[in-house]
Nucleic acid binder design. Structure first.
Lengths: 230, 230
DNA sequence: AGTCGGAATATGTATAGACATATTGGCGCG
DNA sequence: CGCGCCAATATGTCTATACATATTCCGACT
């Protein structure tokens, strides 16, 4: 086992005392001078550790006053949004994408009379419908998708590989299945479907607008805060 | 307007090129030597910028090879979980908490035969039921809650003020309303209810386990990635 | 007593240099 | 031709120092 870098040791040592509750919110963290005496190192090294903790929101640093354990005010959870194909494969199940509709139109949904590609289809896992997806893609931003084989590859997977780093907003709701959705997901009319509305931008330009309806009981989102991994 | 620190300028300059799509995944980022020549600064300064980008998952750094725009496996969205009372008040609506049940028990839900407080109640917004909440609190960790007036103040509000947790896990699903839930929320049987299962810990000790069922159409979660604020 | 201003303090940013380490590409040798 | 080793390279870590900046403390002056 290779020893961790010194600034990592300092960081994780302080982090452990915060996460264990030994240092409650508001508790002072030793100053850089104290830490550098304790660890026999230069100030830049302890500064690196404390700066990382501040970036992670675990501590608050105030000039002249010192460093203190942060009070968790707005709890910002980390919600991992993964590609469905990858997620299904990670569970060891077969994944399949069925393209249902592919058409072009112009509308104001993603900018004034923007040329749009409309895609509808169903994600399957282990042979059963997992999610119905309805998507608009801004052809002005991503013209290359017009040539993509969207029957073979889900549009989300294609976009992730070709234009992934965007800004995104997700709205998560529960919606009752209407007739068309019930048929697509092979579930009873009115079933409770977890629904994700996603909008993405590249810079200021809208890229895509997606709605995914998940089959009842077949999907859950997990959001975490803190060090807990399992 | 005070100029941003140099390492921030370097970081945001690179970040902009990645988010705009100008540098696609796998694209090489200039080496530290090139960046320090370009910005006329020391290597530590560009290192700070690149290290921050690597910590945020935007770039991948490989010794000898260089720095490259990362291929994202998943995007970590930021999901703000707020106190319901505060959220309702922020929308300018009246908030009310109705305590339905308050009892003690022992079970293994939060540790081996832990003494537990069970609380059930309904959050109201603008006079209508917003969410049914069922909660277990670990009395071994938070004994003071036994003396709290949980008819006047929702347990989530009380806990936030008295025993902030350090780690949390949320599971978000859609569930159909059963008879009891339909009555509590004054909604039809089988309605699609957005449901949040939350577990929190302080250090290694479980603190509370909450299930919140939201009335159909009355709540949505919002998660964001990137700089977009609205 | 109240307040204004300077000194003390802790963090914020940056430099120049040094050595460590992982990785890659090429060179030489069998 | 294939294999292994070495050197070049880019990042990783750390030091010692310097100056900037925000904040608080405290004393002096009104």
């Amino acid at each position: 086992m290779k020893p961790a870098p010194l600034h990592e040791q300092i960081r994780s040592g302080i982090e452990a005392r915060i996460l264990s509750g030994a240092w409650p919110p508001g508790h002072p963290v030793p100053s850089e001078a104290e830490l550098m005496a304790e660890h026999q190192c230069a100030r830049m090294t302890v500064n690196k550790a404390l700066t990382a903790l501040a970036a992670a929101g675990l501590v608050e640093r105030r000039r002249r006053a010192g460093t203190f354990v942060a009070r968790p005010r707005s709890q910002a959870m980390v919600l991992e949004i993964t590609d469905l194909a990858r997620e299904v494969a990670a569970r060891g199940e077969d994944y399949r994408w069925d393209l249902v509709r592919r058409s072009t139109e112009r509308s104001d949904a993603l900018g004034p009379m923007a040329p749009l590609l409309r895609i509808e289809g169903v994600h399957h896992a282990a042979g059963h419908p997992l999610a119905f997806e309805s998507r608009l893609v801004n052809l002005a931003e991503v013209p290359a998708i017009a040539d993509a084989d969207l029957a073979a590859e889900a549009p989300g997977t294609w976009l992730l590989a070709h234009a992934p780093w965007t800004e995104a907003e997700h709205r998560i709701t529960a919606e009752a299945a209407n007739a068309a959705l019930a048929e697509a997901l092979a579930c009873p009319l009115g079933s409770a479907c977890l629904t994700i509305h996603r909008r993405t931008w590249r810079g200021a330009a809208p890229v895509t607008l997606v709605t995914q309806h998940f089959a009842p009981g077949r999907h859950e989102l997990v959001a975490r805060f803190g060090a807990r991994t399992g």
